Simulated scan of single mutants.
Amino acid sequence: MRVGTPGFVPARLEEARAARRIKTQKDLAERLNVAASTVSRWQKGEIAPDANALAEIAVAFGVRREFFLRPICVSDRPMFHRALSSTYVPDLKFQRSQMSWLQEVSSILQHYVDFPHVDIPDVLAGASWRQLRTEDIEQIALELRRHWKLGEGPCGDIISLLERVGVIVGTIEMGTARLDGLCSWSPVDGRPHILLATDKMSFPRRQMDGAHELAHAVLHQNVSEDEFNDSLKDIEAQAFRLASAFLMPSTSYPLEVRRPSLANLLNLKERWRVSIKAQIRRLADLQIIPRDYVTDLYKLHSARGWTKEEPLDREWPLTQPRTLREALNLLVNAGGRTKADLLAVEFTMSPTDIERLTALPSGWFKEKAGELVQLKNGHSRSREAPSEAGVVIPFPQKLG
């Protein structure tokens, strides 16, 4: 008689199905050539797959067998996303599974590397998000800028800011343009994580998506799952208002809107790196232009075919998150762990999954580590070295 594998975690099977977009238990059963009832009992925890079956499951999902033996840390906080419609359920489940994997990779790397300190100020001071008025959110945006020393001009690259204040950022291709970003505070390290979709992405849209998820981290850290489900519309409205106010401060941006025409907003887009459509919404929120004129601007915007892509959208390249990528490079290059060791001992997902979530180049895990040599004193860096300043992620003292 075959005995099930001790320590099998049923929730991992559901997570793996979501990550690989296998919609039904029947679909998985057909892949594994087992009865659908068997998969159902595995997922309910009534029985566990034996060693041979677990090995086949691991191969089918492209993960190590240990993936199904490692417990999942469940948080009582929601993952903030934009929609709850049933039409989005498979996409939402995929996105949530990727967030869980991002948090797991981040947690593992923090055993070896010191990440930037989490610098998310308590702007609510004990108050509830439900008590916030519009003017409160506007003031919070200005307080955040002062706290992070951003001044009152354009924000700059939101990804760099997020990582500087201790947020872990990952990017993935969702396969749909219906979902944008996801924000979640990790139950393991109490650190905010943001996952941004790359589908049909432009720099201005990335700016707004990143600021939107940052707003959730700032305003809604203590929102319960039930509150989120019951008040999604209000929570999303607050996040969008704070994101807009953060990217286009009320004390400076309106002063540059001399004539609220599409041509003028296009000029402002080049400076503020915010979409024309978002600027129209901002001017409406600040009641700088009347409601009828807002409608006219939206109609003209659509008539010019700018709904899917605006002018200048392709002008600025997208930056990639750096914290996790640089942590892995630092860990391997310093000799703390080898790539093979990390895959065999620490990570349970596939190399491709890890490369994608950490913004590493495809095939990074297959590349051989460089020789242990260094430049002589006085020689300049390689011409291929990046010119921009890096995010410093020092090793803890225990590694020397």
Rank of each mutant, 00 (worst) to 15 (best):
M1H: 04
V3Q: 12
G7Q: 08
A11S: 15
R12E: 11
R17D: 01
R20Q: 02
R21C: 03
L32I: 14
R41H: 10
G45P: 12
E46H: 14
A48S: 10
A51E: 12
A51D: 04
E56W: 04
V59H: 12
A60K: 10
F68L: 04
F68S: 11
D76W: 03
R77Q: 09
M79K: 11
S85G: 14
Y88H: 15
V89P: 06
V89G: 02
V89W: 03
L92S: 04
L109K: 05
L109M: 09
F115K: 10
P116K: 04
P116R: 01
P116D: 05
H117I: 12
D119P: 07
D119K: 10
P121C: 06
P121K: 07
L132A: 00
R133M: 00
T134Y: 00
I137K: 01
E143A: 10
L144S: 08
R145I: 02
P154Q: 06
P154W: 05
C155Y: 06
I159Q: 04
L161N: 06
V165T: 03
G166I: 04
G170Q: 01
T171N: 00
E173Q: 12
E173W: 04
G181R: 08
P187W: 03
I194C: 01
A197S: 15
M208G: 08
A211Y: 05
H212P: 13
H220L: 05
N222D: 15
A239T: 14
A239K: 12
R241W: 07
L247G: 04
Y253H: 12
P254R: 13
P260Q: 08
K269L: 05
R273L: 06
L283Y: 02
L283T: 10
R291F: 07
R291W: 09
L300P: 04
G305S: 07
G305H: 06
W306T: 05
E309K: 13
E310N: 10
P311Y: 00
W316A: 06
R325H: 07
A334F: 11
G335A: 10
T338Y: 02
T338G: 15
T338I: 06
T338L: 00
L343S: 07
A344H: 08
E346F: 11
P361K: 14
P361Y: 01
K368N: 11
L375F: 10
K376P: 09
G378P: 07
R381P: 09
A385Y: 08
E388C: 07
E388P: 08
P394W: 00
K398H: 09
